[in-house]
């Protein structure tokens, strides 16, 4: 009986985390389209509900009622598994995100490694979808995205090492608390910029949306998908974007900490601060989508391997030597 109640408690906690994440994914799609439209002097979705807020709900309803078409020459099991894998991986990563010092589902020792591992697994949904479709465009898109995500993961990993050198712990709450005096965005500003661009590439956002470049590959790995399965890819993609924003907020912008530690600011719940920081990063993502043209594929690879990787490695050496020389290494 005791076990059962703990299980129910955990399920309740998980639902309390997952439902807001899914709702905010729907809202964030609306925000993305809205920001994109405003940059281009359009209105964007503004008809369904106040300010068009319910647009994503309408879209979801439309997707649910559409027929799911499974191509006859596809590999059916993997074809159906692919969107499920994308969606699941995008959601399980939220387990370790701390919304305050105590509000975290799983406060594990290796939180940042878990986040990194789950985001590096995200490529499987795309490869599986692309291969199982048994069609040219999805396959090309899948191969592109596999190469792209593996290359940009490397620089994200090195950037995480930079932050870890300053913190001395892999726990996400420790990383947030280490930024009490100064957010890491100030001393590690170049790393923040590289992280932001790598996050764009890791989530296949423009200007790095080559896996689904519509002018070359129709819709990339999603070409053969329809109805709810397409919507699941879509939701997973946006949940991943939100996750990368959350990761950026935790690593560089002080996570759930208020920007200034004085009276009126400390009254605001820390979860609100984290959400505001995620939103700030997401609006930057949306702006980039609206104003930057798509990269050519060889330039994308060059940027990842010949620019970001050496730069972040040099910065690791710099950070380590600075901390070592001034005896600031976090040793306990």
């Amino acid at each position: 009986m005791e076990h059962l109640s703990t299980v129910f408690q955990e399920v309740y906690k998980i639902l309390f985390l997952l439902v807001p994440v899914l709702v905010s994914v729907a809202m964030i799609v609306w925000l993305d389209r809205r920001v994109w439209a405003f940059v281009q002097k359009r209105q964007g979705p503004n008809v369904v509900g106040p300010f068009g807020l319910l647009q994503s709900l309408a879209d979801a309803l439309k997707y649910i009622f559409k027929e799911i078409i499974i191509p006859s020459s596809s590999n059916k099991v993997i074809f159906i598994l692919a969107p499920i894998v994308t969606m699941t991986l995008a959601l399980i990563a939220w387990a370790v995100i701390p919304f305050s010092a105590t509000q975290v589902l799983a406060d594990i020792n290796v939180g940042i490694l878990y986040l990194f591992a789950v985001s590096s697994l995200g490529v499987y949904g795309i490869i599986m979808g692309g291969w199982a479709s048994n069609s040219k465009y999805p396959f090309l898109g899948a191969i592109r995205s596999a190469a792209q995500m593996v290359s940009y993961e490397v620089s994200i990993g090195v950037i995480i090492i930079n932050v870890l050198l300053c913190v001395g712990s892999l726990n996400l709450n420790d990383i947030v608390i280490a930024q009490q005096n100064m957010w890491f965005v100030i001393p590690l500003f170049p790393m923040f910029v590289i992280f932001f661009i790598s996050a764009l590439a890791e989530t296949n956002r423009p200007p790095f949306d080559l896996p689904e470049a519509e002018a070359e590959l129709v819709a990339g790995y999603q070409t053969e998908y329809s109805g709810m399965m397409y919507a699941m890819f879509w939701l997973g993609e946006y949940a991943n974007i939100l996750l990368m924003c959350a990761m950026g907020a935790i690593l560089f912008l002080g996570g759930w900490m208020s920007p200034i530690d004085v009276y009126p600011f400390t009254l605001v719940p820390s979860a609100i601060w984290l959400i505001l920081k995620i939103l700030l990063l997401f609006i930057l993502f949306a702006l980039v989508k609206a104003i930057v043209p798509r990269y050519r594929y060889d330039q994308l690879m060059r940027l990842g391997w010949k620019v970001f990787l050496p730069l972040s490695l040099i910065w690791v050496v710099l950070t380590a030597s600075y901390l070592f020389y001034f005896n600031l290494l976090p040793v306990n």
């Binding site: 490694l113 878990y114 591992a117 590096s120 697994l121 593996v150 993961e153």
Partner: peptide, 16 residues
């Protein structure tokens, strides 16, 4: 976690 990152996240992707 390192097993996940290195083998699943990178090596197996290249295998595939």
């Amino acid at each position: 976690m390192i097993m996940l990152i290195v083998y699943v996240g990178a090596v197996a992707v290249l295998f595939l």
